[in-house]
Design a protein around this nucleic acid. Structure first.
Lengths: 241, 241
DNA sequence: GCCGCCAATTGATTTCGATCAAGTGAAAGC
DNA sequence: GCTTTCACTTGATCGAAATCAATTGGCGGC
């Protein structure tokens, strides 16, 4: 028995949205076809090269985005250049901080990505009128909060080895939610980015990769491609018993 | 010129809520007097001794709360006992994780506190019917997310001295939002709790307190009472230039 | 007043990860 | 084909914070 799609006026949904909406459950799912059409009038998609900045720390927010493809990293920088990645966002996550003029973080593409942008004021107006949309954004905020707090435990209390294992486990479970086999994947981050995510240096990250490889917790096809023969074992290395 | 209170039926508001609502801008502010009455029927207040647990990691959530007075710490524990405080909540914060059966964190009173509890299902029902209430909760979630990400930078990239200074600055700016003079305050956390908040050991926290005292960044009346002669200087020690 | 308790401090030593410094290997440019 | 470049790895040393171990100081109970 199949559950019917709720929206009747399927054909009224903008063409670009139709393909998109089918593929994922982003925030747009909360909108009626009319609202989607309205939003779509003001929205534009673009492709982001690795390293391309979506928004910078301290800048005025003009657009929100939906991640269509790729991984976006959220970073904070200190005045002296020290840097910390405070979040990773995967498709089809919503990207943006509602109700705030100025961004407290930098968002940039960790991999080659594609995003769908809409002007802040258009979405803000839509949120006011659409409780279901605010509910979706609320849920995403809570999800991000849960993830941030999980990561705080990792940053504050785990050893370098546990941190690296935790990172690998995180990627294995997030990179391709569709896939059944999560045991082989490409890392969306460079060693430098991983270091910034884990609060370590590149050298320490590299040494821990080597150590995990020598202990057969992971195999490395090349610098980016990882195979995890035993996911539970990796989880134990991550300290998540 | 004074702005008039919005709610007309002021006298319909439950007595306990009236005193409370006047004092702070918690989530209840989003409710009509009827809703407040309804919620109040099922709510109960209680006093929490220091260390009293509101909810434990992995337990089923039956109540949400509003913090009326005091400070509540949110902690995560690893299987081997390592512990990390992932958030501090001050009055009049809302306490709880909407839309989740099971708590991912432990919440316990850091100081002697007072909370107002309401059954989860009652508030959940109210949220569904009251967009303004969900909006308030959404805003609080985003605030907590911002704070969590700020703290991730502290945990991942700051030195022990910067961490302790950051903690003192956080407390100075949060403990008593009413007060004009934020330069003298009591710490709501023991050294052990501070260590768990900063991802350090008690000994290191203690040494940094001593160091900050010797460098005249702070004065200590006793273990708990702190005076900050120059808040900007403390901020610089915290690495927030 | 003295004891016991607990929180915090202080000191000595160790350890883990940072720093400094080469070295490797793959891809791009000439 | 060779060099250059860039990301990563590996090695040697250093240093900040952890660990181990007393000691201090305040407070409640008797």
């Amino acid at each position: 028995m199949e559950i019917r799609r709720q929206d009747i006026h399927n054909s009224d949904i903008p063409l670009v949205c139709r393909a998109c909406e089918a593929r994922h459950g982003g925030v747009c799912g909360a909108l009626t076809s009319e609202q989607l059409s309205e939003l779509n009038k003001h929205s534009f998609r673009n492709r982001l090269e690795t390293g391309a900045e979506v928004i910078g720390q301290g800048e005025t927010v003009v657009n929100y985005s939906n991640i269509m493809r790729g991984v976006v990293k959220l970073t904070k920088v200190m005045a002296d250049g020290r840097q910390q990645i405070v979040g990773l966002q995967f498709a089809p996550d919503f990207l943006g901080r509602p109700f705030l003029e100025e961004s407290a973080i930098t968002a940039e593409a960790a991999t080659e990505s594609e995003v769908c942008n809409f002007p802040r004021h258009v979405l803000d107006r839509l949120v006011k009128k659409t409780p279901e949309l605010e509910h979706k954004l609320h849920r995403q905020a809570l999800k991000e909060l849960d993830e941030a707090r999980d990561w705080m435990l990792t940053l504050g209390r785990k050893s370098a080895q546990e941190k690296v294992a935790s990172f690998l486990y995180l990627i294995a479970t997030h990179i391709d939610p569709e896939s059944v086999d999560t045991s082989t994947f490409d890392l969306p981050l460079s060693r430098a980015d991983i270091a910034d995510f884990l609060g370590l240096t590149i050298e320490t990250v590299s040494r821990q990769f080597t150590k995990l490889r020598k202990e057969n917790v992971i195999r490395l096809e090349n610098n980016r491609n990882v195979t995890v023969p035993d996911m539970d074992r990796l989880m134990r290395y991550a300290g998540n018993d």
